[in-house]
Nucleic acid binder design. Structure first.
Length: 218
DNA sequence: ACCCAGGTGGCCC
DNA sequence: GGGCCACATGGG
């Protein structure tokens, strides 16, 4: 199994259209923070609540009442952290990019990525999700699901984020949207308990691999 | 009564 | 650099 074949199989089975629905890049940023360690169903509920309160807006979010924000975010879990981080993000965008907060997503991908990573609550996975789904950049999100599927399909075996990301980014030949689609499809496959993971093979590391003895899943 | 979810940051060694 | 831990609600 190689990357392009995996992507092809997944595209035959799942649809990437509107996998990450949003009305603005800022909504993607907020959603990316809210969805950390949380199901999208709960995040969608919170996004709706934020929207109805007019808070999916940099200016309004930045000046939102924190306790109020916390109670709105509660169903998404880790609500105190997330409220502080989302408000912190909005505040940063407002002061750093006064004319247009979304200018932050302009410029070279790697420099936007570094700036995202400097913010509280935005790590590699969240930064890459924002780049891919909020700013249409070519980046692969090397999340836990990605590591798991690539390992079980025998494509690549590693738990290291940077290693997995650079492997995919330098080996997937498929054109534009390849990284975007691959990640979206991997998550759908992971959550779809009714369908088996595509045929599994041990990775090329052989007995050196710490997962070598893992049994194949159905 | 467990376990997991579209992670991150802090602290320790 | 890795290994633990807190953060928290909701659903199986």
């Amino acid at each position: 199994m190689d990357l392009d074949r995996l992507l092809g199989l997944l595209r035959d089975t799942y649809d990437v259209q509107d996998w990450w629905p949003s009305e603005s890049p800022f909504e993607v940023m907020v959603g990316a923070i809210l969805t950390q360690q949380t199901t999208w169903e709960n995040v969608a509920k919170v996004l709706d609540r934020l929207r109805s309160e007019g808070l999916l807006d940099v200016e309004r979010m930045a000046s939102a009442d924190l306790p109020m924000l916390e109670s709105t975010i509660r169903p998404a879990g880790f609500y105190k952290q997330k409220a502080k981080r989302v408000k912190g993000l909005a505040t940063y965008l407002r002061v750093r990019y006064t004319s247009d907060p979304m200018l932050m997503l302009n410029g070279p991908t790697e420099s936007v990525r570094r700036e995202l990573l400097s913010l509280d609550g935005i790590g590699k996975e969240t930064a890459d999700s924002i780049l891919v789904f909020g700013a249409q950049r070519e980046k692969f999100v090397a999340a836990a699901y990605s590591a798991r599927i690539l390992r079980r399909t025998g494509v690549f075996c590693s738990e290291n984020y940077d290693e997995i990301q650079s492997f995919v980014e330098s080996n997937l030949k498929c054109g534009p949207k390849g990284f975007h689609d691959l990640y979206a499809l991997i998550v759908q496959l992971s959550k779809d308990t009714c369908r088996p993971v595509p045929a599994c093979a041990r990775c090329s590391l052989g007995p050196e691999c710490k997962f070598f003895t893992e049994q194949r899943r159905r």
